[in-house]
């Protein structure tokens, strides 16, 4: 009797979670999809976004992601390799790095916005720009990427490394020829997740990359990300709801695709290793 009741409770809560998902995604998808047309993606917004499309906003978003990713790949991959291949897990330096990354992962996004505003916009003199925004996003996405890259490096059996060592390869050669090629799917999955994290971000961008919805002419120009566009349309512009739904639809479709492919890659590589 008790077993049955508890089982019903478990199944009910699962049902509620699934329903909530369909309520949110379904609402945005139906209202956004029925209203969207191809030219929405390419045209410029007009009347503060009430009419027109999101062309320049998508360009700004991609530029922000590009800057974010280039920093995340170079710094993050280096850190992940260092932590996993060139230092002992228990060494003091690596412990400090791991702890500071855990804290970084927990810092609220609005605080990243404050930080980016002071360091990139004011002190480094980049102003409200796509460059400032992209750098701020990179700081946010780094811990997630490093964690994923690290776990994919850790998944490589140590026989690979000792075998390479037995053949007389140096550590650097082992890394380039043996370890990295095996870890690549996991690293790509980490990158995709970082794109998702950066694309979903709003609060950190308001004070770093700004609100301007024109086509950006350079990386030092201010640019509005898609998520900021949704916020602005729904909160500050009366009559912007329909275009907000369209933009939210685009953002959700992009993110669902991104996260779906990342988790597919991760599951595939896990299966190979087992």
């Amino acid at each position: 009797m008790g077993d049955k009741l508890f089982s019903i409770l478990v199944h009910l809560s699962v049902l509620v979670i699934a329903l909530v998902f369909f309520a949110i995604v379904g609402d945005v998808a139906i209202k956004g999809f029925t209203a969207i047309q191809w030219d929405f993606i390419f045209t410029e917004p007009s009347r503060s976004g009430r009419e027109g499309g999101v062309g320049p906003i998508l360009v700004s978003t991609f530029l922000l992601l590009g800057i974010c990713l280039s920093i995340v790949i170079s710094l993050g991959l280096g850190t992940a390799i260092y932590l996993n291949e060139f230092t002992f897990h228990k060494s003091k330096f690596s412990k400090i790095i791991e702890l500071s990354l855990d804290i970084l992962a927990g810092v609220p996004s609005i605080v990243f916005g404050l930080f980016g505003n002071v360091l990139f916009c004011k002190i480094l003199g980049l102003g409200f720009s796509i460059l400032s925004g992209g750098l701020t996003l990179a700081c946010m996405a780094l811990p997630l990427f490093i964690r994923t890259a690290q776990s994919s490096l850790r998944g490589i059996p140590s026989e690979y490394r000792s075998g390479s060592k037995a053949l007389g390869f140096s550590k650097a050669t082992t890394l380039i020829k043996v370890t990295l090629p095996v870890a690549i799917p996991g690293i790509i999955a980490g990158l995709i997740l970082s794109i998702g994290r950066a694309m979903a971000e709003t609060a950190a961008l308001i004070f770093t990359s700004g609100y301007v919805d024109r086509m950006p002419s350079s990386l030092l120009d201010s640019g509005r990300a898609l998520s900021v566009h949704i916020y602005d349309l729904s909160m500050n512009i009366s009559g912007g709801d329909l275009n907000a739904y369209r933009s939210a639809f685009l953002l959700i479709i992009g993110l669902l695709f991104i996260n779906f492919s990342a988790s597919t890659i991760i599951k595939k590589t896990l299966r190979v290793e087992n």
Binding site: T202, V228, L256
Partner: peptide
């Protein structure tokens, strides 16, 4: 179900806020 949770975890906060505001 596992996929649904993973995808729900990826929905951006601004979309949650927007849905909250509208519905």
């Amino acid at each position: 179900y596992r996929r649904i949770i993973e995808l729900l975890a990826g929905v951006p906060s601004v979309v949650f806020g927007f849905w909250g505001l509208m519905v």
